[in-house]
Design a protein around this nucleic acid. Sequence first.
DNA 1: TCCATTTTGATAATGATTATCATTATCATT
DNA 2: AATGATAATGATAATCATTATCAAAATGGA
Lengths: 143, 143
Amino acid sequence: MEYYRAVFNEFLRARKLKCTGQRDSILDVFLKTERHLTADEIYGLAKKRNPKIGYATVYRTLNLLYEVGLAREVNWGDGKIRYEHKYRHRHHDHLICTKCGKSIEVFDKQLEKIQAKLSREKEFIPTHHQLNIYGVCDKCRKR
Amino acid sequence: MEYYRAVFNEFLRARKLKCTGQRDSILDVFLKTERHLTADEIYGLAKKRNPKIGYATVYRTLNLLYEVGLAREVNWGDGKIRYEHKYRHRHHDHLICTKCGKSIEVFDKQLEKIQAKLSREKEFIPTHHQLNIYGVCDKCRKR
DNA sequence: TCCATTTTGATAATGATTATCATTATCATT
DNA sequence: AATGATAATGATAATCATTATCAAAATGGA
């Protein structure tokens, strides 16, 4: 936690950007929540500890966290970007329940290998990828 | 082609919806283009053969094509929904070049199997999925 | 402390998509 | 072919997430 903050501050210094209370609050909220958060949700949480915080600052800071590699952007096709921890968190994919909106993280080594193979075959240099499996989760099915 | 039109008309009749010139034009444009089109692009093409056509009708018709299963919605994370043929076209995934925006279709049987396995493990009933691999294509790399 | 530079927050702007609603078109039935 | 109930249309307003604008405030090196 302390380490992640240091990573961010180092990034700011290197880019001649400034450390501010708002950026601290937003990073804090982001790090403390082990969930996929939208900008709006982060705004709500950050506002609790710093009521003067504005929407634009949340968006700006999330883009910085994305740039420095602390956050990953996730797109579930509902028109909102979600953010999840990236730094020191292994890549994974998502099962997304279309009934309740909850997500389950999954990982498979073989999957990654096949993706690399497909890219190679097409002489394509992959940078990142996103696999979303939509369906109905256990709980919703039994409901 | 004629068959797809019949499928759509059958769907409309079953839902007590009406066959209209606009719907014909939009379906025609959609079927004749072997590319991933946005609503805006389809609007442009449909307007050529039927200048009176409106934006809203394009969106409404695309949603119908999605419902009847003739179109698949593709989301490449750039804020626009794209449409591609689904009926009698095998499912596939996409390599998306972040330089030129072009896409390459890929398919791997093993990939589908692994996805089914991951779903099973989490007692999740998958309905559909989307895998996007982002990166740089052959042409852009050599440029 | 000073000051150049960056940040901030309020709000306007943007861009894709959807909703509204008065008018028009469709189609099964006469 | 005319009727009428219902659905469709198109122009445009509304929505919603995100980005841009800009004057005022905060930061941090000198």
